[in-house]
């Protein structure tokens, strides 16, 4: 299977230096787990971040140099001989960071897309089975028709970084024809200012109930009633049998 990982050329949120975003590292891990040749694809000039992506296991990174809409450039490049699998992170880190690129690409190529992928399974009859990660550790099995686009879950297992591989990765620059320009984004941009979240029922709310030196049985009763009221004991029936 031929896999392609989309690299955004991100920056580190703290230092601002080029770095591979967490989600793209996870995407490289997924691509490697699927087996076969895995290459990276980046629209724009190559930077240190593309070499670093090599350190996570990519053999080759192609940098597509051409002006205009990145989606159009990628779509043209990917449809020449289409790969089986295109992987991306959940969102870029250092640009618009909207997470729209894989969706626009899927729409343009007419390929199916799944987001939040935790693991990749086997291929059968042109269908790839994947595991999707949901909140609170829940998982969902899914099947998707190849060729397809998958967005990696940020918590998907990340491959280790090997410095020597980062030195040996082949970064190629490919000149492509210009695509139509993207409309300019409006608005004023300025340095980020952290704003406090709304204070709701969550968070450190002092002044709870305090029960001083109760009998153990009384304490147990109150505790159990409290946990029940919070709805935390719904799914424990299965667990209580083998305990």
């Amino acid at each position: 299977m031929r896999g392609v990982v989309l690299l955004s050329g991100g920056i580190d949120p703290v230092s601002g230096r080029p770095a591979v975003p967490r989600g793209e590292v996870a995407a490289i891990g997924l691509a490697l787990s699927a087996g076969g040749a895995v290459g990276g694809l980046h629209v724009g000039e190559g930077s240190v971040a593309q070499r670093q992506a090599g350190g996570y296991g990519l053999e080759r990174v192609d940098c597509l140099r051409g002006g205009g809409d990145a989606v159009a450039i990628l779509a043209a490049h990917l449809s020449a001989p289409p790969p089986d699998l295109v992987l991306a992170g959940s969102r870029a880190c250092g640009g618009e960071d909207s997470g729209m690129l894989p969706y626009l690409l899927a729409e343009r190529l007419g390929w199916p897309l799944l987001a939040g992928v935790m693991a990749i399974g086997a291929v059968a009859d042109g269908w790839l089975s994947v595991t999707i990660g949901l909140p609170l550790g829940a998982r969902q099995e899914a099947r998707i028709r190849l060729p397809c686009i998958l967005c990696a879950h940020d918590a998907a297992p990340a491959p280790p970084f090997v410095f020597d591989r980062a030195r040996r990765v082949v970064v190629r620059t490919v000149d492509v024809s210009d695509a139509p320009p993207v409309p300019v984004v409006e608005g004023v941009e300025r340095p980020y200012r952290a704003r406090p979240r709304l204070i709701g029922s969550a968070g450190p709310g002092g002044g709870g109930t305090v029960l001083e030196n109760p009998e153990p049985a009384e304490a147990a009763r109150v505790l159990l009633a409290h946990l029940r009221a919070l709805g935390m004991l719904g799914s424990s029936e299965g667990a209580s049998i083998d305990a």
């Binding site: 920056i11 580190d12 949120p13 960071d97 984004v185 300025r190 980020y192 200012r193």
Partner: peptide, 10 residues
Amino acid sequence: VGAMRRERAA
């Protein structure tokens, strides 16, 4: 935007 280092109002 920009890795949470900048913000845009629009």
